[in-house]
């Protein structure tokens, strides 16, 4: 449960992160806007409230791990890492440039704070299960968090990982599902239906929670609930809006892989109260 001050601080943090995500995408002239914005509130609560990590020591053995399975939302992750202090904010301007440590998709060999390589959808949850198993083997309190897309869970590997996580009872694993209802070719329901999601994961043996993915307090409560759950992995289904925070990007599949133009950026920043 967050107190009022924490909610205020995290709300302001999320606002700043949105500003940086939009600026970085605009500077890169390519990249994924919609899915970065829908995931941003969950990432804010993870990186600035829930997770135990030390930006001055990214390899701290007892840290919590974060896996961005929907790797195309890299701008949201990079903004969090920069704000947390893993690298200078200025680096964000180099997103997707030749030679930058900020690749189009997360690269653990290039970016401090990035735990695994993702970008090919469907592979992150398996890696997260592996990280959780390693922490358990080593007797560490470290928890692993993994962010999935609702289109991404069409990949069969997700369900193989879901089966393994429950089978091994990795209760130090918490997956979050960014349920924004859209993928590239349109509505998830029309492209390839994945619902009902909760009952599917329940049947696989997971602890399942559903929250408003833009309610910081609700997200924090669900993360605490997940941490208290023993014997099974937890899935938090986060109901979100693709493009959240910028009205003219919201609910639009067409802004999945399109960055804000100069004009859109200035209108978006104005909306976010950033001059």
């Amino acid at each position: 449960m967050l107190d009022e001050l924490q909610v205020q601080e995290l709300t302001e943090k999320a606002r700043q992160l949105r500003v940086d995500v939009l600026k970085m995408l605009n500077a890169a002239r390519s990249g994924h806007t919609g899915g970065s914005l829908s995931a941003l509130d969950a990432l804010t609560v993870l990186f600035f409230h829930q997770m135990r990590h030390d930006p001055s020591n990214p390899q701290w053995a007892d840290r919590d791990h974060f896996v961005l399975s929907k790797g195309h939302a890299a701008p949201a992750l990079y903004a969090c890492l920069a704000h947390a202090g893993y690298f200078p904010l200025d680096d964000l301007k180099t997103l997707r440039r030749l030679g930058s440590h900020l690749q189009g998709h997360p690269d653990m060999r290039k970016t401090p704070g990035v735990e695994v390589c993702t970008g090919s959808l469907g592979q992150g949850l398996s890696q997260a299960v592996g990280l959780a198993l390693a922490a358990r083997l080593q007797g560490r309190a470290s928890r692993t968090y993994c962010l999935l897309g609702d289109g991404e869970v069409q990949e069969g590997q997700i369900w193989e990982a879901a089966m393994a996580a429950a089978h091994y009872g990795v209760d130090n694993l918490c997956a979050l599902l960014d349920w924004n209802g859209l993928q590239i070719d349109g509505e998830v329901d029309k492209v390839m239906r994945v619902t009902p999601l909760g009952p599917k994961f329940l049947a696989f043996g997971w602890h399942v929670l559903e929250v408003d993915g833009h309610d910081l307090n609700a997200i924090a409560r669900a993360l605490a609930d997940a941490a208290a759950c023993t014997g099974k992995p937890t899935l938090i289904i986060a109901r979100t809006v693709k493009g959240k925070g910028v009205p003219f990007f919201e609910h639009k599949a067409s802004y999945h892989g399109v960055p804000p133009s100069d004009d859109e950026l200035s209108r978006a920043l104005e909306h976010l109260g950033h001059s």
Binding site: A28, R29, S30, G31, G71, R96, Q103, G104, H105, D107, C117, T118, G119, S120
Partner: peptide
């Protein structure tokens, strides 16, 4: 493919 990077 360009900006998407080596993964793609």
């Amino acid at each position: 493919v360009g900006e998407d990077g080596g993964s793609h």
